[in-house]
Design a protein around this nucleic acid. Sequence first.
DNA 1: GTTTTCTCTGAATCCGCAC
DNA 2: TGTGCGGATTCAGAGAAAA
Lengths: 379, 379
Amino acid sequence: MGELTKIRAPKRKTKHAGVDKADLPLGQILTGDCVAAMRKLPDASVDLVFADPPYNLQLGGDLNRPDGSHVDAVTDDWDQFDSFALYDKFTKDWLTECRRVLKPDGALWVIGSYHNIYRVGAILQDLGFWILNDVVWRKTNPMPNFRGTRFTNAHETLLWASQGEKSRYHFNYRAMKTLNDELQMRSDWTFPICSGGERLKDDAGHKAHPTQKPEALLYRVLLATTEAGDVVLDPFFGTGTTGAVAKRLGREWIGCEREAVYRKVAHARIEKELPLDESALATMQSRKSQPRVAFGAVVEAGLLKPGAEIFDKKRRWKAKVRADGSVECGKETGSIHAVGKNLQNAPSCNGWTFWHYEDGGEVKPIDAARGLYLLAAED
Amino acid sequence: MGELTKIRAPKRKTKHAGVDKADLPLGQILTGDCVAAMRKLPDASVDLVFADPPYNLQLGGDLNRPDGSHVDAVTDDWDQFDSFALYDKFTKDWLTECRRVLKPDGALWVIGSYHNIYRVGAILQDLGFWILNDVVWRKTNPMPNFRGTRFTNAHETLLWASQGEKSRYHFNYRAMKTLNDELQMRSDWTFPICSGGERLKDDAGHKAHPTQKPEALLYRVLLATTEAGDVVLDPFFGTGTTGAVAKRLGREWIGCEREAVYRKVAHARIEKELPLDESALATMQSRKSQPRVAFGAVVEAGLLKPGAEIFDKKRRWKAKVRADGSVECGKETGSIHAVGKNLQNAPSCNGWTFWHYEDGGEVKPIDAARGLYLLAAED
DNA sequence: GTTTTCTCTGAATCCGCAC
DNA sequence: TGTGCGGATTCAGAGAAAA
């Protein structure tokens, strides 16, 4: 079993000795300006930066909806810059510091809108960062353009960049493909804006932060470009979405935030967050870094009993598990992949994600059983 | 009544005398480098620029480094700084020339990918252009990422910018809303890439141009931001998608293209293109472009009689119509708009849709009476 | 309890002519 | 160049309130 453990270990190149995590302020929100705060961190100590900097919106007067109600705009001091030059300097400063604290094979994400993202992108390139993708967050429910003067501004842009052209950044290709129903994950992601129960409120019931990002966005970012145990730094921590999702996904986090109010809200929020258990995380592992597991071995181990019923998500087909790890559905018999493929008349089928089973009243893909198997194999 | 008809014509401001179109090389493809070619055009002569600049750094042999030294683009081994600086200079040059030939209320579109669009966007802002939207072209059928190393690069970005913050760019809001099934057109557009019969082939059957854009994209751009008769300039004409769609939509066009092969293909293509007839070109017009009608004129015409009662939809307020077109509600008197605004204590009010009247037992907004007035005026 | 209607709100560079 | 004012302009989703 020792061999499985070895194979399973995250396949991160450790060419660079790295910093002892004990020397890092993990799970802490550093106070003050983010550039000053980051100076306290050692070189090459962080696996990923996620940054949601001020957008430098340059708003005119008030704006009303057609029904006369007033739009609550982002007019906070932290978003005010007197010129592009000042914004550029600010951007260059924090990006430079991020570059220093990032490991050579680390990566950086920045989110922005057309107001700032072109400046950020150009500066990023000037500093030597290498853009890997620009990703579009399509909002299902953007604020309309109330005056009918432009296209509805229905998206924001994320930049994903490595330290340089040759750096060996980390990308969980398989996890993304699985998440996207066995199609390659595209550069356009569709999520609603953060509202409802997820939107943090202050004591008076007002939104705690004007620009809180949806957790689903961070979830995908962290799942795609980090492994459990990695250190994620967020220089503009706000109300701590990055920290909350990092904790849930078993990643370490460090935040920087100037405003005491936001820090307080973030601490309370993250305190409540519960990490997912390891089996749930295991299903998200990249296939490349996992040993191949035969379905038969899972059956053999008793995680799915011979005779058990498995079914596709929509329960259009049911199949019976046989002792040798083959499955049977009417006249079709064979491997989980072959039967799934033939039933759907599809060119191929990933049986691990196609077939599901019930475990304690819950429907799970049989991939979860494989996760449990691997977990057990580690001991 | 001819006067009303005249007022109805599209309301383009001609504050600036403008250039006689006869002095422009309409329907021509200018040869040579686009900056040199554009120098032949007069100032403020073009309504719209659509540009699809190259984003690789192989720009040809006629470029110089910022220090003036000559560069052989194909063989020179640039460092990253040099190549970005060179690309920036190139970008600044052609954008500056576009800015000169554009009318003060003209606008510019640029399309690009993450390789170049951040540089273009930042330079555009530095030159004084005012970004109106960034628009994402989502490809329904992008090329997959074969090596599984990144997200599928499934989109390109268009920037739409006016000459400056205060400039009065043109936007066919109603036409876009109609095109999008009566919902505001969003900043993300979904089209397939250019392929099949639309993709131009050379004599050997190979694609004539590596980055031919789909006509649907240009169709939407031109429909959204130009009127029939407007002059559209494309500094990187390629195989002439802009020209073909412009001709079809009854817009004038000017192209610049260095490569004789592309010019030849473009000419042949545009030659075959047929303009839509005028009735097909008609688009939904905004209320803004309709003639202004005084409420008094509606009263005068007898469509609403002095002394008649008007009320808001929920009948919270009632007002009396007076002979001069003012209305009275308790202590409030004045225009339909001012009284509606004051009663609701709102920042503004459109009296035409706020106030209602009864006509044959039916409740209608007084806007319906305006409609009748305009209908009568057309005869 | 259930269904329907109303109300509120979200990173927004959000008017233009006449005087 | 500023000021006044006519009047054009909104989508999805959550939650509360009403039916």
